[in-house]
Design a protein around this nucleic acid. Structure first.
Lengths: 145, 145
DNA sequence: AAATTCGCAACATCAAATGTTACAAATCGA
DNA sequence: TCGATTTGTAACATTTGATGTTGCGAATTT
């Protein structure tokens, strides 16, 4: 399949929403992401189901952020968008009858598991607030020039 | 796309070849992997290009292992099969004009890079000889029962 | 009532691995 | 040399899950 960019996309949107006091429509968000409003609704439905954003229908409606930036991590967003596959690499057969294959699977799965735990750990340590602060730091640096 | 199982498959084949003094035909290997002989030839062509295996055409031909098990790591095989994408997850846009998106990309890419380095490091530390030894250890344990 | 906006189903597209078919080329044995 | 075996390779089909698209109903505001 294509590479799953839902995490990056949603983080991008959430940081914009954090600096905006009115709702963004799906069309506006689709413009930010250079995609389609239906893709936005579909992906953000996962965030809404976990309470990270809210949506309102009708005129003047749209999407607003609904979570504490200090308590929401990149891992929370990753899980909310439903990303199942982290790796493009995998085992050939999860329950091999061949003992050679079981040894191979065990070694490869072990390496993959360690990398996955590191990635999950990294994502779990970064909050939306920290990303927002990085953005403000860049803005302040550019103002000084 | 589907998950890339070329590394696991080739490791499986290499360990079988290491215990076999005659060539395996692509058909025999396809039988081990429950796939098609053309898939086998295509994938193993990468290993051959790096000198890890040899192939001989014609009657009595087939594939033989041609590397030092003690010097060949899982990383060598991973690279030989041409696996480019390690992650199913990625950035939405590699060169964003939006400063918010650049902050997001930097954080996500950083987490992915660290996990990738750990995985590459793990694969580079395991030799084919070590996998073969794990297999023999299992065989010895089963004989004792 | 009209315009706006989300919700959602249904289907199309994309990308890369995997699967399949067909045939040429090389090698071995009789 | 002939025939069987086996690899080499091109061309095309299939699979899988994210992404893209169209259409229309439902909710909300004015």
């Amino acid at each position: 399949m294509r590479t799953d960019s839902r995490l990056s996309r949603m983080l991008h949107v959430l940081l914009h929403m954090a600096r905006h006091d009115r709702p963004y429509t799906s069309e506006q968000i689709a413009g930010m992401l250079q995609t389609n409003a239906v893709v936005v609704r579909r992906t953000m439905a996962g965030l809404r189901a976990h309470g990270y954003v809210q949506s309102v229908t009708g005129q003047g409606g749209g999407w607003t952020i609904a979570c504490d930036l200090n308590k929401t991590t990149l891992l929370d967003i990753h899980r909310a968008v439903g990303g199942r596959h982290i790796f493009a690499i995998g085992l050939d057969n999860d329950n091999p009858s061949c003992a050679v294959e079981r040894v191979v699977n065990s070694a490869v799965a072990d390496a993959l598991d360690r990398a996955e735990r590191l990635l999950i750990g990294s994502l779990g340590e970064i909050t939306l607030a920290e990303l927002a602060e990085q953005f403000y730091a860049i803005c302040r640096a550019e103002l000084k020039q």
